[in-house]
Amino acid sequence: MDAFTTITGPAAPLLRANIDTDMIIPAQRLIGAGRDGLGRFAFERFRFNADGTENPDFPLNQAPYRASPILLGGENFGCGSSREGAVWALRDLGLRCFIAPSFGDIFYANCFQNGMLPVRLAAADVQRIAEQTAASPSNAYTSVDLERQVVITPNGEEIPFSVDPRKRSALLEGLDEIALTMKRRDEILAWQARDRAARPWAWEGLTL
């Protein structure tokens, strides 16, 4: 997994609340799909008109935001299903960081699994970043510094954020969680042996 350090770019505004995973990518696009190449379906209902042409009103179709690595969201961003395809699709668009007042729990966890950083900031702070960006979109850059845990707004204001220390170091170092857990294999096997004695009913009748 790519290590995450500091990300800089124009922050694309998508401030409506309850952007759900169906909006990010409909389930139909994920039948048999892998992790790659899903960007063309990201927000497709919003990005494209019925005839397949681009909707110029959608922020991610506007020049300064096309290659933006940062997306500003509203409350409960990524609510809905557990589909990790939502994160894959947004990553394929070039996004690496989401800034919103709150996130759906499963989406939030899925971000970290893919080297993406979800940042929780107060709604007023998110709004302010959007306003400062809108004032001069082509050269108003926002930076997200995970090392120092600050968002630097286009006007140079530093807004601290907190992220779980465990997830922070995993992102900074690009750690592989499975490899980490595999180091505890003996502990897991010991737990299973103890549990089998303590709760035989949880293990009965399952032998293949």
Binding site: E84, V87, N110, Q113, E177, I178, T181
Partner: peptide
């Protein structure tokens, strides 16, 4: 519910 990466972790490690 969990995502695909967490599911892979579970299948590999329980």
């Amino acid at each position: 519910g969990i995502g695909a990466s967490e599911l892979t972790h579970v299948l590999a490690t329980q």
